[in-house]
């Protein structure tokens, strides 16, 4: 705080980054001057991460289920799933965004190559985050004691019913906090789609900065992201605390 007010460049930083009028202007935007609204841009971030989160939850679970399966028949799928997680956890997300965002349109295969930039961004984010979330799920599935599996099977439940009624409910309960953690980071990473040119909050702020020579739009975008991620962070903390107290109560 002291640095902010007393530093030699403090006043210019306050002018270029925290200028209330500029912050408001960048937030609402100005179509006449070709300025996109950072506020409206954020809506793009929101629908992107909502869509991605749903897809990631499903695809991640599928991959994890395949990877933890035992059946020899599924071996090729297991290898495929392992390859998928290795590749998409190993490539920097920015490169995945470039490859999908610039590659898929070039392929020229019908509808797949005629999507909006934001959609390509979602595909890239979903690929990368599915790989991460699959690992989270996998840890959860492996954390369920083998005795649970034996007990369910000895009751005559099929493998599928055992997964659905016994293993998954316990696994998902353990992985909710780390899962939410990944979602917080996914929410922020929607900003990377700006590199493809999608007009979301970060990109709108960038345009504002380039046009008006004022960076207050970036601060607005940062504050808006905080407004999204902080509640989710608090919620995650609460879940972890509740989980811990429940476990302690169970142990006593």
């Amino acid at each position: 705080m002291a640095v902010f007010f007393l530093a030699p460049g403090g006043s210019s930083v306050r002018y270029f980054f925290f200028n209330p009028r500029q912050m408001w202007d960048s937030f609402v935007g100005n179509p006449a001057k070709g300025l996109s609204s950072v506020g409206i841009g954020l809506l793009t971030n929101i629908w992107m991460f909502l869509l991605c989160e749903v897809l990631v939850l499903i695809i991640g679970l599928l991959i994890a289920s395949v990877r933890t399966s035992q059946s020899p028949v599924l071996l090729p799928f297991r290898l495929l799933a392992t390859g998928f997680t290795d590749i998409f956890r190993g490539i920097p997300i920015l490169l995945v965004i470039y490859m999908v965002g610039f590659g898929l349109p070039e392929l020229g295969i019908g509808a797949i190559s005629r999507q909006s930039i934001a959609v390509y961004g979602c595909v890239a984010l979903t690929l990368t985050y599915s790989a991460y979330v699959a690992e989270v799920y996998r840890a959860g599935l492996n954390s369920v004691a083998n005795g649970q599996l034996l007990a369910a099977r000895s009751l005559g439940l099929t493998h599928a019913a055992t997964m659905r009624r016994v293993v998954l409910p316990q696994a998902i309960r353990t992985v909710i906090p780390p899962l939410l953690n990944d979602f917080i980071s996914l929410q922020k990473d929607t900003a990377l789609v700006s590199t493809l040119g999608a007009i979301e909050a970060t990109r709108a702020a960038q345009i504002y900065a380039a046009t008006e020579f004022n960076y207050s739009g970036y601060v607005v975008a940062a504050l808006l992201f905080l407004a999204l991620t902080v509640p989710l962070t608090r919620f995650t903390d609460r879940l972890i605390a509740r989980d811990r107290s429940r476990r302690l109560a169970g142990a006593s």
Partner: peptide
Amino acid sequence: RRHIAMVFQTFNLFP
């Protein structure tokens, strides 16, 4: 297994 039931040393109730 629906005809042969089994009880385990560690109970294995579903928590």
